[in-house]
């Protein structure tokens, strides 16, 4: 295997797979997939070093990787909680009571939107529409699973499950 420029073997191979989806000489198209893989691997956030490594691996100036990463909502540049809860507060969700969900989460977790709980378990994010308007209100966990038609009660069930999952995972 060639030099991974400080990237893990697995991130490097994700990038390799993506490079093949694009024409010859268009490796920079793999930058998004590289950022995502590296961020997941790093517990949910990017560091300067990671971006520099991606840049070196793909053959781009570091600033051009940072330009791209900093544009996107899903890129995090500071450590975040084990579970990122992205709560949609856009109009359809708002009409269906997302503020109640937000209030409930803030109260139960003791942090405000945008913050991370002391124990590093949850980060709350107030996000834009995630294309679940017909099942509003909703939230997404770690940019993956959607939880829809939320009520404060179903949020509690979810939180309990995530806490239990984290405990058993340790």
């Amino acid at each position: 295997m060639s030099d991974t420029h400080g990237l893990s073997q697995s991130t490097a191979s994700v990038i390799d797979v993506w490079i093949k989806k694009f024409p010859e000489g268009k490796a920079r198209s793999a930058v998004l997939a590289g950022l995502k893989a590296a961020q997941d691997e790093n517990g949910g956030h990017l560091t300067n070093e990671i971006m520099e490594n991606i840049a070196a691996y793909i053959g781009l100036p570091a600033i051009e990787v940072f330009e791209v990463a900093s544009f996107y909502d899903m890129c995090e540049f500071k450590p975040i909680g084990r579970y990122k809860l992205s709560v949609c507060t856009n109009v359809s969700c708002m009409l269906c009571g997302s503020h109640a969900i937000v209030d409930h989460l803030e109260k139960r977790l003791g942090v405000k939107m945008g913050e991370t709980t002391q124990d590093g378990m949850f980060t709350l994010r107030d996000v834009e529409c995630l294309a679940a308007c017909i099942n509003a209100p909703m939230l997404q966990v770690n940019d993956r699973e959607l939880y829809e038609k939320l009520t404060p009660e179903s949020v509690d069930v979810l939180l309990d499950r995530l806490i239990a999952e984290a405990k058993s995972g340790e």
């Binding site: 268009k26 198209s29 793999a30 998004l32 995502k36």
Partner: peptide, 26 residues
């Protein structure tokens, strides 16, 4: 091929989507 952005509404604009796919700022 399937591909994915990292989340930005403007990527839906057709030329922004092309830039996104090219790995540039969308």
């Amino acid at each position: 091929h399937n591909a994915a952005t990292l989340g930005a509404y403007i990527c839906g604009e057709e030329t922004a989507l092309m830039n996104a796919l090219e790995g540039k700022r969308p």
